[in-house]
């Protein structure tokens, strides 16, 4: 099956300061990512804070131009941000933000905000648009009488429902959810996650789901990519990745998921400092914290490649290949 969205060699770097003379210092938030998203799947992206998940998500949507590499949507290159082509493409791909209050205009009623994409793309007007708004609100579980409310009059979960219904107004094909529930109360996180999953099934959406919550990712994602300091270190079907993690970093992550009846007894505690993209270690970025690293790991950056039927970026995995292949 051809992927609906494809990323090749994505790199993003940001200036970390200013300098009067010479080049300002910079830091790579995303450092060479290849990724394919297949139609109709939910791809999870996990990784520590600062590993570049949000940056990757924004580049996948074309909201930011990558420093290097390219994103292809249905085989076509992503148009430059803020061009007419790019604006038209927004009807097909949308972002769900982490903080719904910040994403909503506090001076507009929620009905007006849900109707906005319809107006922007000139699809519907008047009664027809009002009908569609009512339908969308019902769809995400908002009451009709909430149409004239302002964002601050709603609860966090309700606001996120508004953001979701606004994103769905144009019947997009592709959705990036960037930690869509982490700003919400734990008690309603599950509701919103279930809503997203139901919508994905009913509308046939393709979705990239960025989250810290490995359990949720395990539950709803078909595939998952694990990021460490701007690179994907492991990628595969989520059952396999969570059931049999290969990369030492993934293993540490997976061991931290509490499981019923087991506790956290065999949890792998990562040593060393948390990753800092401004001071990326040479070679494999994970080697200073890795239990199985040796001198070679500091000398070579491992590529994401197939080992024993799975994609990992670890020199130690390569070492195993001949053994199993033989």
């Amino acid at each position: 099956m051809t992927p609906i969205l494809e990323a090749r060699g994505l790199v993003q770097q940001y200036a970390t300061g200013r300098s009067l003379f010479g080049k300002p210092p910079s830091m790579r938030a995303v450092d060479g990512v290849d990724l394919a998203v297949r139609e109709g799947e939910i791809l999870g992206i996990v990784g520590e804070s600062g590993s570049g998940k949000s940056t990757l998500g924004r580049m996948l949507l074309g909201l930011e131009t990558p420093f290097a590499g390219e994103v292809r949507w249905r085989g076509q290159p992503m148009p430059a941000p803020r061009t007419d082509m790019w604006r038209r493409l927004r009807a097909q791909m949308q972002l769900i933000f982490q903080d719904p209050l910040a994403a909503l205009d506090r001076r507009m009623t929620i009905a007006a905000q849900i109707a906005e994409p319809l107006e922007i793309h000139g699809l519907m007007k008047g009664a027809e648009a009002a009908e569609r708004v009512a339908e969308l609100m019902a769809r995400v579980g908002l009451r009709p009488d909430q149409a004239d409310r302002y964002p601050h009059e709603l609860s966090g979960g309700q606001r996120q429902r508004v953001v979701i219904s606004r994103a769905l107004a144009m019947r997009p094909k592709f959705l990036v959810c960037d930690e869509p529930v982490s700003a919400l109360d734990v008690s309603i996180q599950a509701q919103v996650v279930n809503l997203l999953r139901d919508l994905q099934e009913q509308e046939g959406l393709t979705m990239v789901f960025i989250s810290h919550d490995l359990k949720v990712v395990h539950n709803i994602c078909n595939r998952v990519a694990v990021m460490y300091l701007g690179r994907v270190v492991e990628e595969g079907p989520s059952g396999e990745v969570f059931g049999d993690p290969r990369h030492p970093y993934t293993r540490a992550l997976v061991s931290s998921i509490p499981k019923a009846g087991r506790g956290l007894t065999d949890r792998i505690i990562l040593q060393g400092e948390p990753p800092n993209p401004a001071m990326r270690p040479p070679g494999c970025a994970f080697h200073p914290r890795c239990a199985i690293a040796d001198a070679a790991c500091a000398g070579e950056i491992p590529e994401l490649s197939g080992h024993r039927g799975r994609l990992t970026a670890c020199l130690k995995q390569r070492a195993i290949i001949p053994a199993t292949a033989a």
């Binding site: 933000f97 205009d105 507009m108 994409p117």
Partner: peptide, 24 residues
Amino acid sequence: GYAGAVVQLGAKPSRVYLRHILPN
């Protein structure tokens, strides 16, 4: 914030500035 969200919906700058940022 909200303006970034509207841009990402596909709004033109005139709409973002006149309908959203200016009233705020």
